[in-house]
Simulated assay, not measured.
Amino acid sequence: MERGKQLCAWGAAVLIFVVLMVVTPAIPQSEEYHNFADQRELFLGIPNTLNVISNIPFLFVGVVGLTLCFYRNYFRLQGEIWGWSIFFLGVTAVAFGSSYYHLKPNDARLVWDRLPMTVAFTSIMAIFIIERVDEKTGTTSIAPLVIAGILTILYWRFFDDLRPYALIQFLPCIIIPLMAILIPPMYTHSSYWLWAAGFYLLAKVEEAEDKQIYKWTNHIVSGHTLKHLFAAMVPVFLTLMLAKRDIEPERRSLLQKWKIYWIRIKENGLKAERLECEYSEVSTTV
């Protein structure tokens, strides 16, 4: 029965993907993408210096995350260890792949920038399935999701069409916050997922406004450099979450917790109004 549901889910996902590929036009990679605002060589003879060295935080947080995966027992399920290890390997690889690309931006090098990011995106999806839906389904989906992500990079490189890659990149940005809000978590500190999603959203805005931010800051820092720093905050928040979290005693979704919190605020407000009315009556009587 469970296997049938899994096959239906995968079948539906493939069908939706095929329909989107049929009804939407191809999205070629623009050469203008490589024309970043800040192309200064500031020191050590490093071209595009700030866009290169702003990738260093990915290396540090990736190594710390991998250490957490194996140094202490932060996980209840074996699949979690695999998922998080692949995620932090992807984050660590971003430091090298993105730096390599920004030394000489072009399509051939962009592959090595996007590849580790895609591995990180897809492994996060598998982690969420493990923690919030079903361990077995999530664990068995790690390899297919990561391979699907890699295939989107190859498809873009050989057919100059970004549609599959865009789907793999932006779908988790929608699904993960929704799942974080609606599905009861296994662990505490679930709100860190939303902080991570918020910083990633800001990173994408800064990427889109690369030249405008460079102008606003009087040519001090570009939007793309800030994009790297804000994107690095995503694994930072997730690493903090792993270090702080514990088993959730009451498995309530964030939405349920917010509802309870809102009800308590309303009840406290009503109590305060009653006390104020009683105090006014006493004052009038006296």
Rank of each mutant, 00 (worst) to 15 (best):
Q29R: 06
K259M: 15
W112C: 07
T284Q: 12
I153H: 00
F230G: 06
D38H: 07
E248T: 03
G83R: 07
F58P: 08
I183C: 00
K244M: 10
F170E: 05
I129H: 02
A120T: 12
L255C: 06
Y33W: 08
Y155G: 00
I153E: 07
I27S: 00
F237K: 01
A12E: 01
N218Q: 14
N35S: 10
N73R: 12
I53R: 00
T152P: 00
Y192A: 03
A95D: 09
I247W: 14
I263M: 09
V18E: 03
A148G: 02
A13I: 12
I46Y: 06
L20Y: 07
Q212L: 13
M117N: 02
D246N: 10
H189I: 08
G223W: 04
Y155E: 03
M21Y: 10
M179N: 00
S190Y: 08
G11Q: 05
R114T: 09
R274L: 14
P249Q: 05
Y214H: 06
W258A: 13
T137E: 07
V23C: 05
D113P: 10
T49K: 03
T140P: 05
T239P: 00
A196L: 04
T118D: 03
A166I: 15
T285D: 15
L151G: 01
G269Q: 12
A166W: 14
L151W: 08
K244F: 08
F159G: 02
D210P: 04
S123L: 05
V18R: 03
A26V: 14
L229P: 05
E267P: 02
K227I: 06
P25V: 07
Q39V: 11
T137H: 07
W82M: 07
Y155Q: 03
E41Q: 12
E207N: 04
